[in-house]
Write a protein that binds this DNA or RNA. Structure first.
Lengths: 340, 340
DNA sequence: GAACCTTACGCAAACGTTTGCGTGTGGAAA
DNA sequence: TTTCCACACGCAAACGTTTGCGTAAGGTTC
């Protein structure tokens, strides 16, 4: 087992100094052509690769972006990561991904761990628990130590930093408008509890659309779901015998669950009831009927977030002090679960 | 902006030496109680955290596991990652995830980058291109430099290392047997081209099951798909007017695509034709009808892979020289797309 | 008062790099 | 022969840690 070769070993072997080797590999004019060639040949032979750790220590930067997301097994978040990776790789950055599993503690641990030397900056979507707890000290501390943070999707208004979001309310309004425009009048909404920022915003968008159409908001048409993973019974109960002609679901899972439940209840989608979802994931695309939905353009979010972060990392201090919020356009994807 | 505080700064501020600070923080008996308390108070106040990079350099290990997968936006792989993270976090390891995007070059780049100081060992599922190209020098080089590698799912027989797989052939056989046992006789298979190792194995399992039932293998019931992302037309053409009573699809996407196509062709699932898939992802669970499938237990794979790797990383050299292949059991999940 | 022991700390090397600057050697110019 | 200048290289510091060992100061013992 040939251990990894270092400058020191090359130097010893060739009977020159470490600095000579280092300079030779960098084609420094200080070193004679002869020595340069010898060193490079040797380095190639032994497959020398500079040690990243040592470089990070010396340069005081790691060329690494830390991404922390609430869930790793989640289509939307992975598309965002895809976007981040794209930009990062282009610009010579590495990407470290950690999941907080929606736990505040794990978010703090991961952030602190990565912040203590492993990453230069962060792209972060906060855990559910963090939103509930409203404790953001870890994020602020990271920033105060000079490491830029870009928040995306589940952001925090109180924290001043770069952000990438979609206009959730507007997206929801678009969705609701679409239902209204095809003639639906009695539109139920399946949403989350209010402390989930995006859920609340989407609910607001729904209400705004109704008001614009002069349709009174009805308490009994709104279902706020706490336990996302066990929503089927709740949705089934809610939808049962309800006098509605459309359902707006604030995420994909709610949408397909509604579709399944309605199917069992003997209602036809889209003929009896239209369904529109939010997030364009695998499910929406492949379900039968395929689901009309609002696309969040996750990859774009990742791309923009990475660009913002890298700008800040590489920018001179002038740029550093201003913070931007990028709003990604949502778009309506019409499929078969709604029809005119 | 208070930059990150180091031992040196604390030492200067308290007018002691760096080593005193370091020892004090570690509660060394060498240091007087008084000094220890003073140092610790100061360190806490300034939120001192040891710099990981420096520690990695000194200890010559990073306490980080590198995971390289072919695709990040992929349910199965993310479940594996979930398993890896679980074990890693328990044992105090960090996880770096990189995607090769099914590109050989990117796989090499990522591996080399992580290998040069960023990770102590790797968990890897190789890119499609790598399987095609049969070039494994990067993996072997990494191992020869003393960094253990665990291959999972898409493994390489020629490379000697720890591996975690499922018995793909057996899983496929189980699937096919299930179809046979409920009375199907004319079973088509939707599979991948042969160079994808798992696709080939699953095809073999299908053939084995047929033979065991004395059913002759028919060329026209086998479709080998190359372009996974655009399979719909191909599947539609293949299935059209075919005299079959069941379809075995080697992955989830093929399964739902078949279901959709059959739906359009006026065939009812499961009444006219049964469908069974492979991989228990979101789609199988939520599709209507929900799909009977073979679960690969991705999280378990991740858990086992991480354990193998960490054993090797922490083991004495006795363990180091033997390699193990763990075979994860698959299981049949019966849902509505097949019925007796 | 001398010899010795604790106690409490500092020194320095090491991990693998990079890089400004100092320096020995050789040859050319005077 | 002396002076000077390139050339080609090495030294050493720095990044932030850890840790074995050396040592000064002070106290105890006879």
């Amino acid at each position: 087992m040939k251990r990894k070769v270092t400058l020191k070993q090359i130097a010893k072997e060739l009977d020159v100094s470490i600095s000579t080797v280092s300079k030779a590999l960098k084609d420094s004019a200080e070193i004679s052509l002869d020595t340069r060639q010898k060193v490079k040949a040797f380095a190639k032979l032994y497959n020398y690769k500079p040690n990243n750790i040592a470089l990070s220590l010396k340069n005081r930067k790691t060329k690494t972006i830390g991404v922390i997301i609430p869930e790793i097994v989640h289509h939307f978040f992975t598309t965002v990561i895809g976007g981040v990776e794209k930009v990062a790789n282009e610009k010579g950055y590495n990407v470290i991904i950690c999941s907080s599993n929606n736990s505040f503690d794990k978010e703090v641990i991961n952030l602190e761990m990565l912040a203590s030397g492993s990453a230069d900056g962060f792209i972060l979507s906060v855990a559910k628990e963090t939103q509930l707890k409203k404790d953001y000290h870890h994020i602020e501390e990271t920033m105060s130590q000079g490491m830029p943070v870009v928040l995306f999707d589940r952001i925090i208004d109180e924290v001043v930093c770069d952000k990438v979001i979609i206009d959730d309310a507007k997206g929801a309004q678009t969705a609701t408008n679409h239902l209204l425009s095809i003639g639906c009048k009695k539109i139920a909404i399946l949403t989350t509890v209010d402390y989930i920022s995006v859920g609340k915003l989407r609910t607001n968008g729904y209400l705004r659309a109704l008001r614009a159409y002069d349709i009174p908001e009805k308490e009994e048409l709104i279902l706020k779901i706490e336990d996302i993973d066990n929503c089927e019974a709740e949705i089934s109960e809610f939808l049962k015998d309800k006098d509605i002609d459309a359902v707006f679901a604030v995420n994909e899972l709610f949408a397909v669950t509604a579709a399944k439940v309605l199917d069992r209840q003997g209602k036809k989608v889209p003929d009896d009831i239209a369904i529109i979802g939010f997030t364009d994931g695998i499910l929406s695309k492949h379900f039968i009927p395929s689901l009309t939905t609002i696309s969040q353009h996750g990859e774009d979010m990742g791309i923009r977030a990475a660009k913002l972060l890298i700008d800040k990392l590489e920018g001179d201090d002038a740029v550093t002090e201003e913070y931007r919020t990028v709003i990604i356009d949502t778009s309506l994807i019409e499929r078969k679960s709604t029809k005119k």
